[in-house]
Simulated scan of single mutants.
Amino acid sequence: MIDLKLRKSLTSDGTAMVLDIQLNIAQGQFITLFGSSGSGKTSTLRMISGLMTPDEGHLLVKDKSWFDASKSIHVSPGKRKLGYLFQDYALFPNMTVKENIAFALADSKDTVFLTELLESMDLVQLQDFSPAQLSGGQQQRVALARALAVKPEILLLDEPLSALDHSMREKLQEYILSIHRKYSLTTILVSHDVSEIIKLSDLLIELDNGKIRRKCTPREFFGAGLTSAKFQFQGEIIAIHDEDVVHIIHVKIGSELVKVVCDIDETKNLTIGDKVMVGSKAFNPLIKKI
């Protein structure tokens, strides 16, 4: 569905970097771009959207060329059938919810699809509200509905839920997954939230200094060593206590505190504040730094 091979010279925090990636993404896949800040995740989305022009390479979507440096092809962002959802909702403050969504409709007269989007996002009761009257989560649902109004072939999500609290994030994740499936979208997400990535994604692409370092399922990536564990949770280390021959690791998981007994050698690379996966296999606790 998406065949891309793109190269772009960038500068991140004053350091030169060459973003050089090659990907083939199947129709209907939900993939996540993962990596440290400055690794090239958002720049990749911007090149796919047309907001950034690659130096070299090509981008094919359903065998249609959106970009080809060798042939001087560069389809403008407005003519690429995609929806782009940012951290910043970027709603028009002087328009109602309904007007914000209608503004992006591929066919301005398609009131049936407009109603469908309002219903899908649970926005019918809010359709005459202005953005200022909405909560962050409600504004993000409007922004998602607006991104879908163009009937995109590709949905790009650049950490769209990072500004929301945990409860609202979970609700919006359900909306995104439901919409992805309902409209058979090919979705590309940038996220650092492990539980979000595992919940939503079919495939994880790890970027490191502009290059693809690894491709695998989220559970394979985050659960290395824990893949056959009976259960798995994500948490944060808040304390490490030395008990002679073992260490007691205190891990905050949601609102709960879990204590994990570990061999001293296992904790050499663990420090307070680390994000970890905790599991159990054959009644033995397992812990892995994310």
Rank of each mutant, 00 (worst) to 15 (best):
K8S: 05
T11N: 11
T11V: 15
G14R: 14
G14T: 13
A16L: 09
A16G: 07
M17F: 08
V18P: 01
L19G: 09
I21K: 01
T32H: 01
L33D: 11
G35W: 06
S37Q: 03
S39T: 03
S39D: 13
K41M: 05
T44Q: 09
I48K: 09
L51D: 04
T53W: 00
P54C: 03
P54I: 08
P54L: 10
D55F: 12
H58V: 12
L60G: 03
L60I: 08
D63F: 01
F67L: 08
F67Y: 15
A69V: 07
A69Q: 12
S76I: 14
K79M: 12
K81H: 10
L82I: 13
L82K: 10
L82S: 05
Y84S: 12
Q87H: 02
Y89A: 13
T96K: 06
V97M: 02
N100W: 07
L105W: 05
D107E: 10
D110H: 05
T111R: 09
V112M: 12
E116T: 13
E116G: 03
L117R: 04
S120R: 02
M121F: 13
D122K: 13
L123K: 09
Q125Y: 02
Q127F: 00
S130Y: 15
Q133D: 14
G136I: 12
G136W: 04
Q138L: 08
Q138S: 12
V142H: 09
V142G: 10
A143G: 10
L144T: 06
L148Q: 08
A149P: 11
A149E: 08
K151Q: 14
K151S: 09
P160R: 09
L161P: 03
A163E: 06
D165T: 04
M168R: 13
E170K: 09
Q173N: 11
Q173R: 15
Q173K: 07
E174G: 10
I176T: 08
S178R: 08
S178E: 07
H180W: 13
R181G: 01
Y183Q: 13
S184F: 05
L189F: 05
V190L: 06
V194C: 00
S195N: 11
D202G: 12
I205V: 15
I205S: 09
L207V: 11
D208G: 02
G210Y: 14
K211N: 12
I212L: 08
R214K: 15
K215E: 07
K215H: 03
C216H: 04
C216V: 07
P218W: 07
R219M: 10
G223V: 03
A224L: 08
S228C: 11
S228F: 10
E236M: 08
I237D: 00
I238K: 02
H241Q: 13
D242Y: 03
V245P: 00
V246N: 14
H250N: 02
H250P: 00
K252F: 00
V258Q: 11
V260R: 01
C262G: 06
D263I: 10
K268W: 06
I272E: 02
I272N: 00
G273W: 01
G273C: 12
V278P: 02
S280V: 13
F283L: 08
P285D: 05
K289L: 04
